[in-house]
Design a protein around this nucleic acid. Structure first.
Length: 458
RNA sequence: GUCCCCAUCGUCUAGCCCGGUCAGGACACCACCCUUUCACGGUGAGAACCGGGGUUCGAAUCCCCGUGGGGACGCCA
């Protein structure tokens, strides 16, 4: 059995779609599972739409996701070059083979692939024109995911444009032959193209690779497959929003594949071990960003402290470079971030969640304020706190908690009677880390001035 | 329109291949518990086999038809 060789063949359009990411991932997983080779090939035959600067989008997205390629741009390999725009000599060579075999003809300045069989002219109502139909035996595809699929390819098709450039169907097949690709794993939108491809493989006398057509990702709302214009369709978007690549990868694995045993969050090594093509679903999947967000939270929660702090700093630097947080003393920054780690769902929440800990200029939630001040005797509680504060030991959460509980007990009250108003005073909101931690981190002076500020609004 | 693919909770899915389970899990939603707010976590509730025929003692599971969804029908990839 020859070693598995799979390829991911994106075209540089300037976007890296979430569906492309999954196709890349499934190819990569299959290569890793089988100990095979993962090839990256750039399909840049469309001169009109492809741009040099767009290549980096592909490279960076793949790298961010951790999908390293064994052969391709930047790493080389014995079947290069790996950009189609640099392989014209190879295409010409294969075109010659077809020509010599009498399988091509020229029409309208373009080169067409000739199907073998009886021909007849038929009026196509949908396309509103006459087409030449060829009577050919159905192409049979033994798809690893879908099983046996039969389709009749009954019209000749263009393989080289009138400007001399080869089209997708042709270069795709030629490259798969030349690069010794054994398994073609791609989106289901290519299933109908496969009959064309199989005809080409046969005409070129090459072995037909195994095909595996994976289901498509449907847009979250509304009909149709996800397109690059949809919210959340681009990998860069998640990268920008501070999602962890491991979370996105884990989530993507679950779209169309599952490890069984009611397990969902699992390390990549386990996925690699268990992943196989026959285990991939046949039905399309709707993208669910809520579940992705949940997965991301799970991963965020388990990040080691140093790592989480670094991720947070990076997020601030990219999204709020002028934020006071970045001016904070590193030890303080770390403390605040570690207080936030178990509380937030995503890095995106960080700036707003921690703002009052880095600056005295922070918003106060009017609704919360109204509610808190309407209940009990908040003014009295504030006065008691301010009076008691000087005698408190601020060295630890436990010490602060003890002091606060003692204060409450002395007035026949409980911790809860101070909690809401004190939190409002120091943070302007009703959510956040534990109150005692907030007190300790902010320090006695800032706590006092904020309590006083709420007691006597300017 | 033609061709191809698909069909289990709102969503992702297990179960289907090798018919017999209270149709299981996760996200979301709701309730309760935990609790110092908020999250996390825990417990529980509601929630699905698209419809119709067949085959069979028995069908989510096998077959057919319908319906619905998706895709392809380019000198795009």
């Amino acid at each position: 059995m020859s070693p598995v060789r799979v390829r991911f063949a994106p075209s540089p359009t300037g976007f890296f779609h979430i569906g492309s990411a999954r196709t890349a991932l499934f190819n990569w997983l299959y290569a890793r599972h089988t100990g095979g080779i993962f090839v990256l090939r750039i399909e840049d035959t469309d001169k009109e739409r492809n741009g040099e600067q767009f290549l980096n989008v592909i490279y960076e997205s793949l790298r961010w996701l951790g999908l390293n390629w064994d052969e391709g741009p930047g790493v080389g390999g014995e079947y290069g070059p790996y950009r189609q725009s640099e392989r014209t000599a190879i295409y010409r060579e294969y075109l010659e083979k077809l020509r010599a075999a009498g399988r091509t003809y020229e029409k309208d300045g373009a080169t067409w692939f000739k199907l073998l069989g009886e021909r007849s002219e038929v009026f196509d109502a949908h396309r509103q024109r006459t087409v030449t139909k060829v009577q050919v035996a159905p192409t049979v595809i033994d798809d690893l995911i879908r099983g046996r699929v039969e389709r009749v390819e009954d019209e000749d098709f263009v393989i080289v444009r009138s400007d001399g450039s080869p089209v997708f169907h042709f270069v795709n097949v030629v490259d798969d032959i030349a690069m010794r690709i054994t398994h073609v794993i791609r989106g289901e939108d290519h299933l109908s193209n496969t009959s064309k491809h199989v005809e080409l493989f046969k005409a070129l006398g090459a072995p037909v690779p195994q095909f595996a057509h994976i289901p498509l990702i449907l847009k979250q709302h509304g009909p149709g497959k996800m397109s690059k214009r949809d919210q959340g369709a681009l990998v860069e978007e998640y990268q920008g929003r501070g999602y962890l690549p491991a979370a996105l990868v884990n989530f993507l694995c679950l779209l169309g594949w599952n490890p069984g045993a009611d397990r969902e969050k699992l390390p990549l090594e386990d996925v690699i071990r268990q992943f196989d093509l026959p285990g991939v679903n046949q039905s399309n999947a709707r993208f669910d960003d809520k579940k992705l967000a949940h997965m991301n939270m799970l991963y965020l929660l388990e990040q080691p402290a140093d790592r989480f702090v670094a991720l947070g700093r990076d997020y601030f630097q990219r999204h709020a470079p002028g934020a006071p947080a970045l001016q904070a003393e590193p030890g303080y920054f770390r403390e605040v971030l570690l207080l936030s780690q178990p509380k937030i769902k995503g890095l995106e929440e960080l700036p707003a969640y921690t703002r009052y800990l880095f600056s005295d200029d922070y918003p106060v939630d009017a609704k919360v304020q109204e509610k808190v001040l309407a209940k009990g005797d908040p003014q009295a509680r504030l006065r008691e706190l301010i009076a008691a504060l000087p005698g408190w030991d601020f060295s630890s959460d436990a010490a602060i908690e003890e002091a606060l509980k003692a204060l409450a007990a002395s007035r026949q009250l409980g911790f809860g009677d101070y909690q809401a108003v004190a939190r409002l005073a120091v943070s302007g909101t009703n959510v956040g880390p534990s109150l005692t931690s907030l007190f300790r981190v902010l320090g006695r002076d800032r706590v006092r001035s904020r309590l006083e500020r709420l007691l006597a609004p300017a």
